[in-house]
Amino acid sequence: MRGPWHVAVLMGGWSAERSVSLMSGEGVARALESRGHKVTRIDMGHDVAARLAEVAPDVVFNALHGVPGEDGTVQGMMDLMGLKYTHSGLAASVIAIDKQLTKQTLVPHGIPMPDGLIVESESLYAADPLPRPYVLKPVNEGSSVGVAIVTEDGNYGAPVGRDVAGPWQEFDHLLAEPFIRGRELTTAVLGGRALLVTELCPKSGFYDFDAKYTDGMTDHICPAEIPDDITEACKAIALKAHQLLGCKGTSRSDFRWDDERGLAGLFLLEVNTQPGMTPLSLVPEQAARLGIDYAELVEQIVEEAL
């Protein structure tokens, strides 16, 4: 389907990543308008189905992040409405948003991921689920929302203190994983190919929500200054994970690499089915390094959906 198109840009919502979604959505909307397309911005509320039916776009650019825009809920609604939309469909979204389901899907196919177990938050006040240091994270949130690194000399207590602020106060269940020392790497997939590898060097030492979305808090080294075999492994794993999960459009795979262990120290942490499209986001940065400007990137994602 050739343009110009009428695109509904779905953004905002009520997840913990609302502010990021609004930034992504506005960037996408402006890019499409600069290319001559008609854009309707929709800040998702509980009347989203009625709004989409009223607008009747050619395609929906799903710029939502987190639940319910990234977990299959909105995808299923749009499937029922017969709407075309960007990024992954219902099944891929359901699996990829859930870190434990992602492991169950990918690890049997040889994708290296950290061991882990689901724990009841209440149990943390009695004993550590793993030897320290370990990581606790929500099972189905993105953007490092609610991630805690529990160390021997940290301020969470031993065991974790009931009154100490952390994800255990917000979520009934958490995923516990061994802490992997080393470096943060990420690889985008677009149009059936892996793009580049970026190393993320947060000045705070931890690539959390603030480090991701606050200008100047994280240095991006793109392409990453790492051995060729690690670069090729990141790209191969990201593409294989994208395909095994059934992702569409673009995805981004996040890694930890223990550089003292070589290839054996590379682990996939998660696959993001709806990567950010903000000025600090990683997919637009990698695309730009390959000569694909922001507006062209947005159009490519829409074209695949159509």
Rank of each mutant, 00 (worst) to 15 (best):
S24N: 10
E184F: 10
Q243E: 15
A238K: 10
G45I: 03
T40K: 01
P202Q: 09
L80R: 14
G66H: 12
G182K: 08
C234Q: 05
E225G: 14
L282E: 00
V48Q: 02
G72H: 09
V67E: 14
K212F: 02
I118P: 14
F255Y: 14
A16K: 13
P279D: 11
S251C: 01
N272R: 00
D47P: 04
L290S: 02
T218W: 02
N272M: 00
P167D: 09
K38Q: 14
E70F: 11
G82D: 13
T151F: 06
M81E: 07
D163S: 11
Y156Q: 12
V302Q: 04
Q169T: 15
G262F: 05
L90E: 04
P223L: 11
G191P: 11
F267R: 12
L124E: 11
S251V: 00
K103E: 11
E54P: 07
D215K: 15
D258E: 10
R256T: 03
T250E: 08
V147A: 08
Q300S: 02
V145M: 03
R289V: 00
R18F: 02
T250N: 01
G246E: 04
D47M: 00
V271E: 07
D259V: 11
F267N: 07
R18N: 06
L124N: 12
L136A: 10
V189D: 02
Q75P: 08
D293I: 04
E17Y: 06
G246Y: 01
L282D: 00
E122P: 10
L32S: 02
L268R: 01
A63Y: 03
G110V: 11
W168Y: 10
P129M: 02
A188G: 13
